[in-house]
Computed example of a mutant assay.
Amino acid sequence: MLDDLSRPGFWQVCEEQVAEARRLFARLVGADVNQIAVLPNASVAAHQAASGRRWRRRRDLLATTAEFPGIAHAWLAQPGVRVRWIGLSGGQVRTSDYLSQITTRTGMVSVPAVTYRDSIRLDVARVADAAHDAGAQVFVDAYQAAGVMPLDVDSLGCDYLVTGTGKYLLGLPGLAFLYVRHPDGPLPALTGWLGRTDPHTFRATILDSPPHARRYETGTPAAAAVYAAVAGLSLIGGLDLQQVRHHTQRMITATAQRLAFQGEVVRLTGSLDAHGAHLALVEPHADTMAAWLGNRSVIAAPRSGVLRLAMHAYTTDDDIDTACEAIAAYRRRSRTRPEAPR
Score class of each variant (00 low, 15 high):
Phe261Cys: 11
Thr220Met: 14
Ala63Cys: 11
Gln17Pro: 01
Leu88His: 11
Pro199Trp: 13
Ala326Ile: 02
Ile320Trp: 06
Ala77Gly: 08
Gly195Arg: 06
His182Gly: 02
Leu76Ile: 08
Val114Cys: 06
Ile320Ser: 01
Tyr330Phe: 15
Leu190Phe: 13
Arg54Ile: 11
Thr115Ala: 05
Cys14Met: 15
Leu99His: 01
Ala19Ile: 02
Gly166Trp: 04
Gly87Ile: 13
Ala176Ile: 08
Ala26Glu: 04
Trp11Pro: 00
Leu76Tyr: 13
Ser100Glu: 11
Gly147Val: 03
Gln17His: 15
Asp154Ile: 04
Ala300Cys: 14
Arg84Leu: 12
Ala46Arg: 03
Gln101Ser: 07
Val83Gln: 07
Ala260Lys: 11
Pro150Asp: 05
Arg337Ile: 12
Thr269Pro: 04
Gly80Leu: 10
Ile252Pro: 00
Ala204Lys: 09
Met289Trp: 13
Val93Glu: 00
Arg258Asp: 07
Asp319Ser: 07
Val44Asn: 04
Leu170Val: 01
Thr336Glu: 11
Glu67Ala: 15
Val38Arg: 00
Asn295Leu: 09
Tyr168Met: 03
Ala63Met: 12
Met1Val: 12
Tyr227His: 15
Val244Ile: 12
Asp287His: 04
Ala113Tyr: 09
Gly87Lys: 03
Asp118Trp: 14
Tyr330Glu: 05
Pro210His: 07
Leu88Ser: 13
Glu15Lys: 11
Leu187Val: 10
Leu61Tyr: 06
Leu309Met: 12
Val306Met: 07
Ala128Lys: 08
Leu194Thr: 14
Trp193Phe: 15
Ser100His: 02
Arg215Cys: 09
Ile236Thr: 13
Ser334Gln: 11
Ala231Ile: 09
Tyr314His: 15
Ala280Thr: 07
Ser96Met: 00
His278Trp: 08
Leu178Glu: 04
Thr103His: 01
Ala145Gln: 09
Arg82Ile: 13
Gly91Thr: 08
Pro112Met: 05
Asn295Val: 03
Ala74Pro: 07
Gly30Arg: 07
Thr336Met: 10
Val93Ala: 01
Ser6Thr: 09
Pro186Asn: 03
Gly238Phe: 09
Ala229Leu: 04
Cys158Tyr: 05
Ala74Asp: 06
Phe68Lys: 07
Glu16His: 10
Val265Gln: 13
Arg126Met: 12
Ser51Ile: 07
Ala328Gln: 11
Leu175Cys: 01
Cys158Lys: 05
Ala131Leu: 08
Ser271Arg: 11
Leu175Trp: 06
Gln144Phe: 13
Ser43His: 08
Leu293Pro: 00
Thr322Phe: 02
Thr205Glu: 14
Ala26His: 00
Gly232Met: 02
Gly135Cys: 06
Pro341Asn: 10
Asp118Val: 09
Arg250Asn: 12
Ala21Lys: 01
Gly195Lys: 01
Trp292His: 08
Ala313Lys: 00
Leu161Asp: 03
Arg54Ala: 11
Ala274Lys: 03
Pro186Ile: 09
Ala176Pro: 02
Gly263Cys: 07
Phe177Thr: 06
Gly135Asp: 03
Tyr143Phe: 12
His246Lys: 10
Thr336Val: 15
